[in-house]
Nucleic acid binder design. Sequence first.
DNA 1: TTACTTCTTTATAATCATTATAATTAGTTT
DNA 2: AAACTAATTATAATGATTATAAAGAAGTAA
Lengths: 147, 147
Amino acid sequence: MSEVFLKDALVTLKESGVRITPQRHAILEFLISSETHPTADEIYKALEADFPNMSVATVYNNLRVFRNAGLVKELTYGDSSSRFDFVTHDHYHIICDHCGKIVDFHHPGLEEVEHLASHVTGFEVNSHRLEVYGTCPECAAGANKAK
Amino acid sequence: MSEVFLKDALVTLKESGVRITPQRHAILEFLISSETHPTADEIYKALEADFPNMSVATVYNNLRVFRNAGLVKELTYGDSSSRFDFVTHDHYHIICDHCGKIVDFHHPGLEEVEHLASHVTGFEVNSHRLEVYGTCPECAAGANKAK
DNA sequence: TTACTTCTTTATAATCATTATAATTAGTTT
DNA sequence: AAACTAATTATAATGATTATAAAGAAGTAA
């Protein structure tokens, strides 16, 4: 199935005139197969073995390319670096306050909230962002210390 | 009414053993009276006239003190710097994709989403974060260009 | 294939928000 | 007012991200 995602993504890129380089292929593949939501640096380090000469700038550049193509979403939390998430279908994130783990969960879109917000403020609404915070089962069970 | 907020905030701080300095007073006052959700640098610049010798570090230090005391919330969006919001009662934000304006709106808490997330993922839920994005009336009316 | 154009990568330096450090100053309590 | 301690200041350090310029590779057309 991740095969399909990758193929679709490559088609999307080609259609918007973006060249498929080995680095782009690898970054996409890593993002799709990744359960975690990696930072740019994590991607860089993960691909170091296969691309010893790749520059960090390449990772950042291509994450921006993917974001502009709608393939990838950038997640900005309080901490220092952004995380990147391959866009599949709509899902939200729940984040552990202790270990930082991010888990996906599905929920129908919050159209009702969008409507209310639009009505009250006069904005034309495009999208929304929702995250839930808490403690993951592992941290709740073990006596894990806060990060 | 902002008088009340300020007084309450000062009491809260004193109770947790935090000294009230002129700088802290001024930063709090500015945050409370501010309609926008300023960055640390904006606060720094706004108080430059009254505190010509104040250091940026003081602004950051005190924003952290306020955040730890629960008086201030830090908002991290995609852009480079955090914004700070004096916590009054629960509200959400709607943000203009074009000019970046942030407007408050009220909506009952999303307990139902929290419950679902908790049930599906096994997390203990503490809180959530929600933002709505769109185009503000001014940008929709004028031919304003995207930022 | 060859040559050509354009986009991409690389290496490096620059930027900019935020934090750490150490010395000085100022709140608070007695 | 004296003393104790926390806060401020000035400055340097850190660390993520972006800009730049030169070298390399994709796509294209002959």
